[in-house]
Amino acid sequence: MTVAALNTVEVDYPRGRALGPFSLAIAAGEIVALVGPSGCGKSTAMRLLAGLETPTRGEVARTPGRGETAVVFQAPTLAPWLSARANAALPLELAGVARTEASTRADAALARVGLAGAEAARPAQLSGGMAMRVSLARALVTEPKLLLLDEPFAALDEITRRALADDVLALWAQTRPAIVFVTHNVEEAVYMASRVVVMTQGPGRIAGEVAGVGPLPRTPGFRTTEAFRAQVEAVSGLLARGMAA
């Protein structure tokens, strides 16, 4: 079943074309990595998938209803004046869920991302990795069918980054939402995704696609396998060709 699809969409901005023609269909429960050079329109594609923007041409098909799509940005994007709990509960409160129920569900979401005990902390009191986890908890609190991650780990150090990648995979295994994530890191893309979609230089088109090997979620041992190396090579090759195109 398709959760969201971009059908030969094109997006034009006043300063020129940002994306397309570009097509991408996201099936339920798959993890798609979107890789491409800077300025190729990855974030534009994400906004289209989220329904936050409409294409100039082409069409967007989305099945998730209101509250069933969640986005995690590059920065944690938390409200500084709210506690971790209130930040995580925000989507529920905006949807009109009663405050006590929203708090309970927010606490549960925080516990899922390993932040039990930090519910009352303010964003300024959290490390970058912890703040990112609150952001993840806020995304998960509505039990989304489609989870969009726009370079979610880009600002974090390598160790935190790998830990969070494994956490995202473990969280995915619980409810199996479709995940689309943008990254500049080829190894991260290969490690996490069931398929890697490579985009050309902007305005982005599809440069190619590499299907993942082995079952999800992957475990750290996967990083040392021959198959992992081969896939990283394949994606890097596509990227290089996409840059030349």
Partner: peptide
């Protein structure tokens, strides 16, 4: 990005103002 999040969750004008 928070504004976008409010768009995503369909926040009303008043919610956007007060929250």
């Amino acid at each position: 990005d928070l504004e976008r999040l409010f768009d995503l969750y369909g926040a009303g004008r008043l919610q956007r103002l007060t929250r």
